[in-house]
Simulated scan of single mutants.
Amino acid sequence: MNTDTYKFSKEVTLSHFTTKEVDEKAKKKLKKVRKEISELQDTMYAEGKYSMLICLQGMDTSGKDSLIREVFKDVNARGVVVHSFKVPTELELKHDFLWRHYIALPAKGKIGVFNRTHYENVLVTRVHPEYVFGENIPTVKSLEDLNDAFYHDRMERINQFEKHISANGTIILKFFLNVSKEEQKNRLLRRLDIPEKNWKFSSGDLKERKLWSKYQECYEDLLNKTNTDYAPWYVVPADDKPTARYIVGKTISEELKKYGFKEPALAQKDLDKLDEFKAQLNNE
């Protein structure tokens, strides 16, 4: 598998990417990949120079939660931190729109996963611009102020934010889980048909589904304007969950391998006394 085939570029449109790709051996392959991620994260932590930020975006039912569970199953629990961003709190609304994401960034050595991300600020708020009023921005006085220029300016600030953290050692990978409208319908029906899954269903999902075309349009715009060398977007076919998980896991593993992480060497003064230290322990 060449993961570069899933990279977004300005020369293609979102419709260029398929929503369904099936690898019958995806589950088996993922087991190997997630062990690699675990080992790479351990070494990245020991070296202490880099962190990794994984951004997951996708329509409702695209499989973000289960992907996180399966891809990072073997990673040290202290080595991966997941943040699921919901509606901004009162405190968060008193800061700029990137503040709550900045304070959630992973520390050096760790993998941070944003389940829904800072891109909600140029996606959901673009579909529902009235949400921006809660931010009390001095220059926003009416819906007319929330035009394309407003959102494109936000996208540029997101680019600057990502460039800044990249320069500080954060490796950024962004994944759009590309699920089809038909598959979303099937997954919503499954939530209704299976009693144990009922709790996942929200009537709001049906309201948002009616805005499918608008969401797709907004996604394509943000993908075009925020795809960079230092924070690339990958469009992952998400109709088949095992394959989607494997694609994401393999992309993460391949990216981490590029950095050649190494454990720091023991100080020479301690190396010179290894036999002495062993003797102390054996003679207890």
Rank of each mutant, 00 (worst) to 15 (best):
residue 8 F to A: 05
residue 13 T to K: 15
residue 14 L to G: 03
residue 15 S to V: 13
residue 15 S to Q: 14
residue 18 T to G: 12
residue 26 A to K: 04
residue 28 K to C: 03
residue 36 E to R: 14
residue 48 G to R: 08
residue 53 L to E: 08
residue 57 Q to K: 06
residue 58 G to V: 01
residue 62 S to M: 03
residue 62 S to P: 10
residue 68 I to S: 08
residue 71 V to G: 03
residue 73 K to V: 10
residue 83 H to C: 06
residue 84 S to G: 13
residue 88 P to V: 10
residue 91 L to C: 01
residue 91 L to F: 12
residue 94 K to D: 01
residue 96 D to T: 07
residue 97 F to G: 12
residue 97 F to I: 04
residue 99 W to V: 00
residue 100 R to A: 02
residue 101 H to Q: 12
residue 102 Y to F: 09
residue 106 P to T: 03
residue 107 A to L: 11
residue 107 A to M: 09
residue 108 K to P: 00
residue 109 G to E: 07
residue 109 G to C: 11
residue 109 G to T: 12
residue 117 T to H: 04
residue 121 N to G: 04
residue 124 V to W: 08
residue 124 V to L: 07
residue 129 P to S: 03
residue 130 E to R: 07
residue 132 V to D: 00
residue 143 L to T: 02
residue 151 Y to M: 00
residue 152 H to C: 03
residue 153 D to A: 15
residue 155 M to Y: 05
residue 156 E to W: 02
residue 158 I to F: 06
residue 158 I to T: 04
residue 159 N to I: 07
residue 165 I to D: 05
residue 168 N to P: 00
residue 172 I to M: 06
residue 172 I to K: 09
residue 181 K to M: 08
residue 181 K to T: 02
residue 181 K to F: 11
residue 183 E to F: 05
residue 187 R to M: 02
residue 190 R to V: 00
residue 196 E to P: 06
residue 197 K to T: 00
residue 204 G to W: 03
residue 213 S to W: 07
residue 216 Q to I: 04
residue 216 Q to D: 10
residue 217 E to K: 15
residue 219 Y to H: 05
residue 222 L to F: 14
residue 227 N to L: 08
residue 228 T to D: 09
residue 231 A to I: 00
residue 233 W to N: 08
residue 236 V to F: 05
residue 236 V to M: 05
residue 238 A to Y: 11
residue 241 K to R: 15
residue 242 P to N: 07
residue 243 T to V: 04
residue 250 K to I: 03
residue 250 K to M: 11
residue 251 T to A: 15
residue 253 S to T: 01
residue 254 E to G: 14
residue 255 E to M: 07
residue 256 L to C: 09
residue 257 K to P: 01
residue 260 G to D: 09
residue 264 P to F: 13
residue 266 L to M: 15
residue 271 L to W: 00
residue 276 E to P: 01
residue 278 K to T: 10
residue 280 Q to F: 10
residue 281 L to M: 09
